[in-house]
Amino acid sequence: MPQDVLFQLKGVSKCFVKGKEKITIFEDLDLTINRGDFIAIMGPSGSGKTTLLNMLGGVDQPSAGEIWFDGARVDNLSEGALTRWRARNIGFIFQFYNLMPMLNAARNVELPLLLTKLSRAQRKKHVETALALVGLSDRAKHMPGEMSGGQQQRVAIARAIVSDPQLLLCDEPTGDLDRTTADEVLEMLQLLNREHGKTIVMVTHDPAAAKYAKQTLHLDKGKFVQRELVA
């Protein structure tokens, strides 16, 4: 595997059995993600975008094929090993933020750090840095319910990057935001990609959002039908 390849899907298939019917999501899908990529995955509903994202994040398993990450195969890891791998390497950003409503912004951002051996003081420092990066230093003590959607998504971004993962997986990160706020969030993701070297895979319905990525992959009926490089 070349040095700049971070993620590779080789002949990956995913199918479900529903009653007596076998439903195929993908069949024999190949995908290579290089370090520093910012890929937008687009496609109609039911095309398998989120399932693909879940497989990249190790929360769903392929029915066949192999998934390689940083030179190591990960699709055959045990559930515990996959959980630890995810904690080390993946940051998730969800459409509806998925913040813990009973924790303030700082405590939400701190969650991934609880899986590390960092001391309380070290964790505090990392949280402050992450919140500063998303421009929310002054909102550290605010509860999610006290913040706007855009602010909550920025907290979610801070949570995703606080443990310095190599890959950010974003599932419709602007799907619940107005255009202006969506643009702010997308600019932030772009910044993280360009200036902090984060590899980003983003699932979106929104062509305007996809323009922030370096390339867009169009998924339909389990196949990549178009690859588009953004200028």
Partner: peptide, 14 residues
């Protein structure tokens, strides 16, 4: 359910 799923996605164990 959503909180449990989110935590597990973040890497919290079973």
């Amino acid at each position: 359910a959503k909180e449990i799923a989110t935590l597990r996605a973040l890497g919290f164990g079973n």
